[in-house]
Design a protein around this nucleic acid. Structure first.
Lengths: 162, 162
DNA sequence: GTGCCATCTTACGTGAACGTCAAATCTGTG
DNA sequence: CACAGATTTGACGTTCACGTAAGATGGCAC
């Protein structure tokens, strides 16, 4: 998968795309990207001179995360805003962590990040439990039907053997 | 859990409740129950002489199933209608199964029920996989922060020991 | 029969998450 | 520069899953 660049591709991966390609890549509509910006969920990485939105890799990753939280976990955009805001805060905590030498402060920062992550983890874990239960129930039914089918087949064999 | 009936409770569990109590028991609004009926998702077990809806245990169980599919799996009511319709069909298949003696027909009926259940199972299983992955990722982060905290604590001890 | 609360039908309202359309502007190409 | 196509900012429309209010009935105690 090593790509032979026909043009000298920039080593730094800060390529920006405009809204059309960004929407394509993220698998959402342009309207959705603008809407996310409206409600303070996602800011473009920057803007062109003329005012066109420019999306970088980080912004696209954020869209992916938003969709994940939305479709997989079932959070609404307001809740998602809470989560990603906290994650942003974790990022700035990381910066703060690297800039302070006070060990007590560093511990406090880590503790905050830990709490945030634990809360989301608990929620997701609970959901996994419930869905897994659901899945197992379905698996049982599938096994039940399979057993019934096998029984049918056995009877058929016996009949043809008699 | 053997209940001592203060009044001669009917041995048969075909008690019916009206919409108010049904909504309470199911944890939804009365409007929701009527709406489900509107869109052909749920029919009351019967009606009183005057026209009041009467809900039995089966109807209440169906509401629970609907909510499960909605909140847990994230299906919309149209998709849910598809699922429960197929489940109803499985029920009628069971009846047909018990009323026929033709082994080929019995196999065919079981096979149909199997297919339906397998399809839903596959969908749910896929979702569990993805969410579990998500959960594990979060667990990793939690562990990471915990490790960082432990490191902080150790350093603090060393400092106080010196 | 008379209250009184629950329930009925009908119908309009709502919030979330976008869709869609119009008119102006930007961007890249010949 | 001229032109085509992408993008911009409003602003109104839409779908889903109900909420809510109004007026008429039902169910039941007294």
């Amino acid at each position: 998968m090593t790509e032979v660049a026909s043009s000298p591709a920039p080593a730094t991966d800060d390529r920006h795309v405009r809204i059309g390609e960004a929407a394509q890549l993220a698998g959402v509509s342009e309207r959705t990207l603008r809407y996310y910006e409206e409600i303070g969920l996602l800011n473009p990485s920057g803007h062109s001179a003329g005012g066109c939105r420019e999306y970088g890799a980080a912004a696209l990753a954020r869209v992916a995360r938003i969709r994940e939280l939305q479709e997989l976990i079932g959070l609404n955009l307001e809740e998602i805003r809470g989560v990603v805001t906290r994650e942003d805060r974790i990022g700035s905590l990381r910066d703060a962590f690297n800039q302070t030498d006070d060990p007590r402060e560093r511990s406090a920062l880590v503790l905050e990040a830990l709490d945030m992550t634990e809360a989301l983890h608990a929620r997701v874990a609970a959901k996994v439990e419930r869905i897994a239960e659901f899945r197992d129930e379905l698996a049982d039914r599938v096994a039940h039907y399979r057993a019934l089918l096998a029984e049918r087949a056995t009877e058929a064999e016996e009949r043809s053997a008699s």
